[in-house]
Design a protein around this nucleic acid. Sequence first.
DNA 1: AGCGTCTCCTGCTTGC
DNA 2: TGCAAGCAGGAGACGC
Length: 280
Amino acid sequence: MPELPEVEIIKRNLTESLLNKTFLSVEVYCDKLRYKIPQNFIETIKNKKVVNIERIAKYIFVTLDNNNILVIHLGMTGNFLVNHTDDEIIPIKHTHIKFLMSNFRVIRYIDIRRFGFIIIFESGKDVASFFDKRLGVDAISSKFNSEYLINKLKNKKIDIKNALLDQKIVGGVGNIYASEALYRAGISPFERSEDIAKSNKKVDNLISSIKFILKDAIKVGGSTISDYKNMDGESGYFQYKFNVYNRENLECNNKNCSSHIKKIRQSGRSTFYCDSCQKE
DNA sequence: AGCGTCTCCTGCTTGC
DNA sequence: TGCAAGCAGGAGACGC
């Protein structure tokens, strides 16, 4: 599932193919994504040049030379596949949008579950007001610091695992890296957010664990990025070496620990943890 | 207001 | 073997 590291790699990949290039054509095969693709989508993009691409949390922002901004979220299964027009373009199921760029790159947006979306904003101001309500700071930015996090957690009764999933608290962490970061920090997923906020040590540890895990995953993804061109588009995401995620009943990777990884449900989401390394 | 649950979607896995 | 149920998860909607 694309969380911050996967989105960052996809953003870097898109930058290579899109930046300073012009959309020659756009084809929409399915407009029913999380938000319906608007009627004017094609005409808004066609013949426009990409002047900037950035990522905040799990969002990718593509700025065009008419100042319009494409805001992209990959949902659960969204991905972009890049080919050259000279390549054999193998048809792939669940291809919803196809872009042809002025550098003869064919970029396909593929999204099996269609939880992703691409919306267009006319200005940066519109983008800001959209995100003010629903997004906190980016998890690997310097703005994600102890003062910020303590402030966000201090009155929250929810489990810390749930807090990490709340994009208004920290942007970019999803269900997989939330479990991984808590394991690395040695913090129980059940610990209440307001209690974490009372301990500077825990807060600092949690922040550095989150940043370490996300940056480390970007490094791993970065080394496998060349495979993207030849990918079949079905799997899509690189595999990080998880310590807890999807490791139910397997031995804890901590050499000094003889426990096994537990899997439980927290607010309808699976949480993986080690009950001996992660104590409240 | 704050928090938990449901929902959208498809494909893979599990169980009868 | 075949079918149906269960599960996976991001984030907005909804309900208490």
